[in-house]
Computed example of a mutant assay.
Amino acid sequence: MTTTQHDQDQNQNQNQNQDQHQDQDQHQDPNQEFHYTHNDAGLLNQPIGYWSWAANKAVIDYIRAGLTEVGLTQPQWWVINQVRDGARPREDVFTMLRGYLDVGDALRSDIDELIERGVLATAGEESISLTDTGHELLERATARQRKSLARIHEGVPDADFLTTMKVLQRMIHNTGGKAWHH
């Protein structure tokens, strides 16, 4: 059976429509009324691996989109946040942050880009610090991050947030995983 260009175009359009529908399903309007996916008994049987992944993805995507508004990637935000109080050895900043969300050695290019943009100054190759431009960017990014965190925490009482953090950390421990955040 041969496929015509019309058939190929029609299949491509159907695939695009399916992708758009899936994208809409995964990115609900946060202003809509919230409903749990299952009753309590059903939630107890839900896979924690899936829901922790989905929460991770949704929160990180949201934070990254907000930082993009001020011209930063998330790893760049981590870097400027580490030097907010003054110069630090570049290698110390790299070593501390390279494990965050598995960014790894790509963090070196993020630091280099911040230097090229005039956000960071260097004292030789040993230390990095914020420039005046960097301080201004840090202020804008901090304000954006506060806005993002307020939205993420909306409707979540502090006691529930604390319980969630303790449960996730315990699950990491129970599975022999490693996680650390200062």
Rank of each mutant, 00 (worst) to 15 (best):
V119F: 03
V119H: 01
L120C: 02
L120R: 01
L120M: 03
A121W: 04
A121L: 10
A121V: 06
T122K: 05
A123P: 06
A123D: 12
G124A: 08
G124M: 07
G124L: 10
E126N: 09
E126H: 06
E126V: 12
E126G: 09
S127M: 03
S127E: 02
S127Q: 04
I128T: 01
S129P: 03
S129A: 10
L130S: 00
L130A: 01
L130W: 00
L130G: 00
L130E: 00
L130N: 00
T131P: 02
T131E: 02
D132A: 08
D132K: 05
D132M: 04
D132G: 04
T133H: 02
T133C: 00
G134H: 00
G134L: 01
G134F: 01
G134K: 00
G134T: 00
H135L: 04
H135V: 05
E136V: 05
E136H: 05
E136D: 05
E136Q: 04
L137R: 00
L137D: 00
L137G: 01
L138E: 03
L138Y: 10
L138G: 03
E139H: 09
R140C: 03
R140P: 04
R140I: 07
R140D: 09
A141Y: 02
A141P: 03
A141Q: 01
A141M: 02
A141F: 03
A141T: 04
T142K: 03
T142S: 10
A143I: 12
A143F: 08
A143N: 11
R144Y: 08
R144W: 09
R144K: 14
Q145R: 09
Q145N: 12
Q145F: 14
Q145W: 12
R146E: 13
R146M: 14
K147H: 15
K147A: 15
K147Y: 14
K147M: 14
K147V: 15
K147E: 15
K147F: 15
K147D: 14
S148E: 14
S148K: 06
S148L: 15
L149T: 12
L149D: 10
L149H: 10
A150R: 14
A150C: 13
A150L: 14
A150N: 14
A150K: 14
R151C: 13
R151G: 15
R151A: 15
R151I: 15
R151Q: 15
R151M: 15
I152Y: 06
I152F: 07
H153S: 14
H153Y: 15
H153A: 15
E154F: 12
E154L: 13
E154Y: 12
E154M: 13
E154Q: 13
G155K: 07
G155T: 11
V156I: 11
V156K: 03
V156C: 02
P157M: 05
P157K: 03
P157N: 03
P157S: 06
P157L: 06
D158K: 06
D158N: 09
D158A: 11
D158S: 08
D158W: 08
D158L: 07
A159K: 09
A159I: 11
A159P: 07
D160E: 11
D160P: 04
D160C: 07
D160G: 08
F161P: 03
F161G: 11
L162S: 07
T164D: 11
T164G: 14
T164N: 09
T164H: 11
M165K: 13
M165H: 12
